[in-house]
Design a protein around this nucleic acid. Structure first.
Length: 280
DNA sequence: TAGGGATGGGTAA
DNA sequence: TACCCCTCCCTAA
């Protein structure tokens, strides 16, 4: 489930569970064993997310940099007497007084310094989930690029935290053709997209899932069965290829764009092309 | 029960 | 461009 909302939610949950507390740190799988030994018994001072990057903070400018990648997971579970034996390949385990956290399948799990943390953050575009984000930085890139808006929204150096689901959904909600070049968007359109992402992703952090349909398009409002798959959230186009668009009934389409599946409604998101020649 | 695919992105070639 | 991470749900058989 790792788009930006997942990582921000994990940062909040990690802070709640461990901040100010001594933790046991281990790497049952072994691949983080040396770093885990250095951190074992130290106090967690906090956790913070930037886009899809997560940092668990320890005293003395030490951070565990985590990136879940495509299928990584960080599970927090309560325990009473003793945490259970690890299941599967647990790269990192944190154990506090009443909660333990297991990291599996992550792309990145490294012990880094403040300078290294800052270098990771410096490569990222503004994150809609952070109060310190400046959407103008993203607009500067988008408005000067011939790359499609569908690709630009997924580029973490343009915008941090948006993944394949939010990309597809926000473009649908604003009726924008994903293949449209960034430099053909109007400023007003970008501002509306940004404001919408802030709202959608904050909702995602709260509910820990991605819901993007408006009230009139919920299963209850439309009298249709709820979405039933591993994601759970209600969406307009993401992985709905071949199914009717919830707004116009046209069959939702999919294609591959830069090794990722893109979903859109060809009618609702038809690019407006101003007439360049006058026909008789 | 086996196999495919997925919300991502760094790195090697 | 290919691989890697090595999870885990879903589908086809």
């Amino acid at each position: 489930m790792p788009e930006g909302h997942t990582l921000h939610r994990l940062a909040l949950d990690l802070s709640d569970a461990f901040a100010g507390e001594q933790v046991r740190v281990s790497s049952p799988q072994g691949r983080f064993a040396d770093s885990a030994a250095l951190l074992d018994g130290q106090v967690v001072t906090g956790a913070e997310a930037w886009g899809k990057q997560l940092f668990v903070e320890f005293p003395g400018e030490q951070y565990v940099h985590i990136h879940l990648g495509l299928y990584g997971k960080l599970d927090l579970e309560p325990y009473t007497t003793e945490p259970p034996l690890p299941v599967g390949q647990v790269r990192l385990r944190l154990v506090g007084g009443d909660t333990f956290a297991d990291l599996r399948g992550a792309t990145t799990c490294n012990l880094v310094t403040t300078a290294q943390r800052d270098a990771v953050v410096a490569k990222l575009g503004p994150d809609p989930l952070r109060d310190d984000a400046d959407p103008c930085r993203a607009w500067l890139r988008i408005s000067r690029s011939r790359t499609t808006i569908g690709a630009l929204l997924m580029d973490q150096s343009v915008l941090a935290g948006v993944g394949n689901v939010y990309r597809a959904e926000v473009l649908f909600r604003h009726r924008i053709d994903p293949m449209r070049p960034g430099n053909t968007l109007r400023r007003q359109q970008w501002d509306a997209i940004w404001d919408d992402l802030v709202e959608l992703m904050k909702d995602g952090v709260e509910k820990n899932r991605i819901d993007t349909v408006r009230d009139e398009h919920t299963p209850e409002a439309m009298g249709r069965p709820p979405r039933k798959d591993d994601h759970g959230g209600e969406v307009y186009v993401y992985r709905r290829n071949g199914q009717p668009c919830l707004v116009c009934g046209t069959s939702v389409r999919t294609t591959e764009l830069q090794q990722r599946n893109l979903f859109w409604c060809p009618k609702c998101q038809r690019t407006y092309r101003p007439r360049t020649t006058v026909k008789k």
